[in-house]
Amino acid sequence: MRRFAIREETHSAVSWLLRTARAHGHAMRVFYRLDGSQPDPVETYETPGWRGIGPVVTGNRSDGQLQLNIFADLFDTVRLYVDGGHVLDTETGYLLTTFADQACDAWRLRDAGMWELERLEHYTSSKIGCWQALRCAVHLAEPGSDQLDASLLLHAGSGFDQGPRMSSAIDALFEKLSSGPLLYRFSGAREQEEGAFVACGFWAVSALHHVGRTDEARTLMDRLVAMTNDVGMLAEMIDPRDNAFLGNLPQGLSHLTLIGAALDLAS
């Protein structure tokens, strides 16, 4: 998704992955249900199945298998996320350290391999997967950045963090990326002479509400709504220097985030 420049979905997917891994006590499994819970056990039914291939089976026998390639999948995903300009918080760093340690210990073990075979063997691709995971872990440990990304605001509502750390992150975003009630998308956007991204302002309304700063959220909401035009429309971006509309008009995302912020404030 990151390669297709799909930002919100990428944030949501990575947040889900890390949150789910943390919820299961740092024990990585091959797969999970969409709600992050463990899958149902395998059940076999005495029915012939499609073209008599049966029996019909629900569930997946690979659940609970040791597949060492999952370490590479996890760290490759996070590496791409960070290389795309995103920053990991300290707690996530500790979580990834735990998985890197597991890869260090597990690479010597026989596993089911990526083909989910019942017979455990020393598969070359599995060993290389552990190497790739640790290579990515080293890469993640080396770079640092003071660049900010306003899409971090989305995680206040995802349940990832709604405490003092997220509140401080919101303050940092306003300090570095804001111009009045508006926010630029990321560090450097202002210098690229693009306008402030309207949706970011409404994300900030929701984020402030989720961390318990609802009075500030309502004040910000009033200021943003006052920036609509004479027929209540919003553009994709606004130039903070003269409040001129830039980009698409009307912009669906701007209005969807307005509605989302209003619903959050009403909850």
Score class of each variant (00 low, 15 high):
Arg3Lys: 09
Arg7Leu: 07
Arg7Asn: 04
Glu9Asp: 09
Glu9Ala: 14
Ala13Ile: 08
Leu18Gln: 00
Arg19Ile: 00
Thr20Phe: 02
Ala21Asp: 02
Ala21Ser: 02
His24Ala: 02
Tyr32His: 04
Asp35Phe: 03
Gln38Leu: 08
Glu43Ile: 03
Tyr45Val: 01
Trp50Ala: 13
Arg51His: 15
Ile53Leu: 15
Pro55Lys: 03
Asn69Pro: 00
Asn69Glu: 04
Thr77Ala: 10
Thr77Gly: 07
Leu80Phe: 05
Leu80Trp: 06
Asp83Ser: 11
Gly85Met: 06
His86Arg: 14
Asp89His: 09
Thr90Gly: 09
Glu91Ile: 09
Gly93Trp: 07
Tyr94Leu: 10
Tyr94Pro: 00
Thr97Gln: 13
Phe99Arg: 00
Gln102Tyr: 03
Gln102Gly: 03
Leu109Lys: 11
Arg110Asn: 12
Arg110Phe: 06
Asp111Ala: 04
Asp111Ser: 14
Trp115His: 11
Arg119Gln: 12
Leu120Ser: 06
Glu121Val: 07
His122Met: 06
Tyr123Asn: 02
Tyr123Leu: 14
Tyr123Met: 01
Ser125Ala: 07
Ser125Lys: 01
Trp131Ala: 08
Gln132Pro: 00
Leu134Lys: 02
Ala137Phe: 03
His139Trp: 06
Ala141Gly: 05
Glu142His: 06
Pro143Cys: 09
Gly144His: 06
Gln147Asn: 13
Gln147Trp: 07
Ala150Glu: 07
Leu154Glu: 11
His155Leu: 12
Ala156Phe: 07
Ser158Pro: 15
Gly159Glu: 13
Pro164Trp: 13
Arg165Val: 14
Met166Tyr: 12
Met166Trp: 11
Ser168His: 08
Ala172Ile: 00
Ser179Ala: 14
Gly180Thr: 09
Pro181Phe: 05
Arg185Ser: 10
Phe186Glu: 13
Phe186Asn: 08
Ser187Ala: 11
Gly188His: 11
Gln192Val: 09
Ala196Met: 12
Ala196Leu: 13
Val198Ala: 12
Gly201Leu: 08
Trp203Val: 01
Ser206Leu: 14
Val211Tyr: 05
Thr214Phe: 10
Arg218Val: 15
Leu224His: 13
Ala226Gln: 15
Thr228Arg: 15
Asn229Glu: 11
Asp230Phe: 09
Ala235Pro: 13
Met237Asp: 05
Asp242Gly: 02
Ala244Pro: 05
Gly247Thr: 10
Ser254Pro: 04
Leu263Ser: 12
Ala266Val: 08
